[in-house]
């Protein structure tokens, strides 16, 4: 593409989108904490609705933009839930973010259409839970918690599938609209 015709990002709009998506991720994270325990889900396990925003942003904002939203959400967790809960959640989040980046940008499964965003969401939910458990085992110093791995893995399939369906239905429209707003 010719340098002169290359579309430049609309930076004020881009900053606004960063802010809106960060707020959405934080709000969803908070709202989710108000939902009572989901039947057949391990206590403390959540649907991970805020991860919808992070995965969604990865599809059109790129790695840097999504990382900003992920860090903003993590900072909120640090301020509201304390250091230990933050460390456990952050370790899960880092693992899930890294695996989502690999699946969306590096791997071939998504690029070639073998899996949809639901597959990415399921895998990232599983990685999130596994990393969380590893962190919990390290923090508490007891490997007994690894007994909860099967339940967390099962919960990640259910939550990943639900968030994945939301992503599959919303991503194409959001991506299209965002592209119009961001590029001038």
């Amino acid at each position: 593409m010719n340098k002169s015709t290359k579309q430049k990002p609309n930076y004020p709009m881009l900053i606004s989108i960063y802010g809106i998506l960060s707020s959405l991720a934080i709000c969803l994270s908070y709202l989710e904490s108000l939902i009572p325990q989901i039947p057949f889900f391990p206590p403390g396990a959540k649907l991970g609705l805020s991860n919808v925003i992070i995965l969604l942003s990865l599809t059109f904002l790129g790695i840097k933009g999504s990382l900003f939203i992920f860090l903003a959400k993590s900072l909120f967790a640090l301020l509201t839930r304390g250091v230990f809960a933050f460390l456990i959640g952050f370790s899960g989040g880092v693992g899930a973010f890294a695996v989502s980046v690999i699946l969306l940008y590096v791997g071939r499964l998504y690029k070639r259409g073998y899996i949809s965003l639901a597959g990415v969401s399921i895998i990232s939910a599983a990685v999130f839970n596994v990393f969380q458990l590893i962190a919990a085992v390290i923090v508490t110093g007891t490997n007994f918690l690894s007994a909860y791995l099967p339940f967390m893995l099962f919960a990640s399939v259910v939550s990943g599938l639900i968030t994945g369906i939301i992503l599959n239905l919303s991503a194409p429209t959001v991506k299209k609209s965002a592209a119009k707003l961001i590029l001038r």
Binding site: L109, G113, Y114, I115, S116, L117, A118, G119, I122, I123, V157, G160, L161, G164, I165, N168, L169
Partner: peptide, 12 residues
């Protein structure tokens, strides 16, 4: 209809 592919089902 929800955009789920065979690969997603296999992963699940």
């Amino acid at each position: 209809k929800a955009g789920i592919k065979k690969g997603d089902v296999i992963i699940a």
